[in-house]
């Protein structure tokens, strides 16, 4: 029972971690919470659904289409909604309001065009399980877990080693100096949103396959947001740890206490943690010597 719960928790934690990393990436560079991110994840699920079910693509290709589609949408989101604010040097409050507006717009766009119907992915392997020493875990869960961690690991490698990755980390610390070092900031921010969108595509696909596809499914990003805050907003290792921690703890609460109190637990955990550690587990370190 314990190992079983742990594995299920890791699977959902992997998806939380993906979403939390997407949040944190954007936060680390522009210092605001991108509340439109949930809608991008929702659109990623729809794109995947159309690619796989309506156009009959194999699952691998459908995931790729969802990644590219969500990446482009997230990039477009920045171009249309945030770039004009950036040019006017608006405070982060305005970015947040614009993000909320974008989120409401996208959800209602889906209601108005596709409709409020719930869609199910075909039960490809949703119901098939792997059995091992009395532990049973869904193939989809294993796939989601492995794919999430590979994606996060790849992203981390990119951020640590590549020239552009170093520039993204530099910009997260001081965007102005980064432009003095020859970085085209507008292009770099576009890339960051594209990357966050790609992660949204992956998590949208897995969420859609695990549960169902519907216009307000993006609200599950509340959990990703909690995970990102627990880990310390803007910190990528923090987002991963926060996501996995939240996924595992939630699953344990569902299994051993009751699934009814699961969300109460998540939000209480957030409040408690913030009282003890206001900057989260891996809050940013800032040191300036004068």
């Amino acid at each position: 029972m314990f190992t079983q719960t742990l594995l299920t928790g890791l699977a959902i934690g992997g998806i939380y971690a993906l979403m939390a990393v997407g949040y944190s990436l954007v936060f680390s560079i522009l210092n605001f919470s991108n509340f439109a991110y949930g809608s991008i994840i929702m659109l990623g699920a729809y794109i995947g659904y159309y690619a796989m079910v309506r156009m009959g693509m194999p699952i691998g290709l459908a995931i790729a289409v969802s990644i590219v589609g969500s990446g482009l949408l997230c990039w477009l989101n920045e171009r249309l909604a945030y770039a004009p604010l950036r040019k006017r040097k608006a405070s982060s409050l305005f970015f947040m309001i614009s993000a909320m507006g974008t989120s409401i717009f996208l959800e209602n766009l889906v209601y108005a065009t596709i409709g409020a119907r719930f869609y199910n992915f075909p039960e490809l392997f949703a119901k098939s399980n792997l059995e091992f020493r009395g532990i049973s875990i869904g193939v989809l869960d294993v796939f989601a877990m492995v794919f999430s961690f590979v994606a996060i690991y790849g992203l981390n490698l990119f951020l640590q080693k590549s020239r552009t990755g170093i520039a993204i980390r530099a910009a997260s610390y001081d965007i102005e100096v980064c432009s003095l070092n020859g970085v085209n900031i507008a292009a770099l921010i576009g890339l960051v949103f594209g990357l966050a969108g790609a992660l949204a595509g992956i998590s949208g696909m897995f969420l859609g396959m695990k549960y169902i596809v519907y216009p307000t499914m993006g609200w599950i990003t509340n959990k990703a947001y909690i995970a990102a805050v627990i880990g310390g907003l803007g910190s990528l290792p923090g987002a991963v740890v926060g996501g996995v921690l939240l996924g595992v703890l939630e699953t344990f609460v569902s299994a051993y206490v009751s699934s009814v109190v699961r969300d109460v637990f998540s939000f209480s955990l957030l409040v408690l943690l913030l009282m003890v550690m206001p900057t989260g587990l891996f809050g940013r370190f800032l040191e300036e010597k004068v």
Binding site: R169, V177, C178, N181, G182, V183, R284, F285, E287
Partner: peptide, 22 residues
């Protein structure tokens, strides 16, 4: 710039590499 404004979250080597970005 004034007050050096290094990237405190990067290593010394990474700071130098940022200088050679272009």
């Amino acid at each position: 710039p004034e007050r050096r404004r290094l990237y405190a979250n990067l290593t010394v080597r990474e700071n130098l590499l940022m200088g050679a970005y272009l």
